[in-house]
Amino acid sequence: MKVYKKETVQYINASIDDCWAFFSSPRNLQKITPDTMGFNITDFDGKNMYAGQIIQYKVSPLLGLKLRWTTEITIVKDKEYFIDEQRFGPYALWHHKHFFEPTENGVKMTDVVHYALPLGFIGQIMNALVVKNKLKEIFDYRVKAVNEIFNSK
């Protein structure tokens, strides 16, 4: 199985407290996800992130096809990082680390995603043709949305 890596870094003009409050709330995921994804949380307990939390979604990443996706928040270190991992969904592997580091001017946020696709060679072709570009589009949108929320003040 081929494992891919996507990493992004963004500087946020906010305190670590404000930044953590926003990103540790699953309710805010939709605010930083493109509308074209049809992202909808279908089940979660309404609490801020904690280790063991299960969040279920429906997403439409391609051609309007609705997919169910279940993630678990596996590790949370308050105001430093959290990790979400897919339990059920479109990927053979999805491991997403979110790091938050206070700086002189706010917070440095680093996302590191390791992912793999099912179907062997066909999955590798799908990554080259579609998935890699779709993830870039999603993370580019996220940068723009986070800038509008935090960096336009």
Rank of each mutant, 00 (worst) to 15 (best):
K144M: 08
E80I: 08
D84S: 01
I32T: 09
V76E: 11
T36N: 07
F100G: 03
K31I: 06
A14D: 05
F23N: 11
L117D: 08
A116G: 11
Y91R: 04
N40V: 11
I55P: 00
E137Y: 13
A116E: 00
F88L: 15
Q53I: 05
L62R: 01
T42R: 06
T110Y: 02
Q53E: 03
I75M: 12
I55H: 04
R68T: 12
K79A: 05
V113H: 04
H98M: 01
N151L: 01
G106S: 02
A128K: 14
K6F: 01
D111L: 01
F150T: 04
M37V: 06
L93F: 07
E80F: 09
Y81L: 12
T33W: 05
L119S: 14
G123L: 13
F88K: 15
P118N: 15
M126F: 15
A92C: 03
I138F: 01
S25G: 00
L29P: 03
K97L: 05
C19W: 12
N105T: 13
T74E: 12
A116V: 02
Y115M: 07
D45Y: 06
P102S: 04
W69V: 11
I83P: 00
K97E: 07
K66S: 00
G89F: 12
D45R: 09
N48Y: 10
F39K: 13
I125Q: 13
P26H: 03
I54R: 10
C19L: 13
L93W: 04
F99C: 04
H95L: 10
F139H: 09
S24V: 10
K47W: 05
V130W: 13
Q10L: 13
V9R: 15
G120P: 00
G106I: 03
K31H: 14
T74N: 15
L129H: 02
Q10F: 07
Y115P: 06
K153S: 10
K2L: 06
A128N: 09
Y4T: 02
I83L: 12
T36G: 03
M49R: 10
S25T: 07
K108W: 04
I32H: 05
N40L: 13
P61T: 00
I149C: 00
P34N: 09
F88Y: 14
M49Q: 12
H96N: 04
D140L: 04
V130M: 14
G64N: 02
K31V: 08
K144T: 11
T103Y: 02
L63P: 00
F22R: 10
K31Y: 12
P61R: 01
E7A: 10
I138Y: 03
T74L: 15
W20V: 09
F99E: 07
W20D: 06
F23P: 01
L63D: 07
F121V: 13
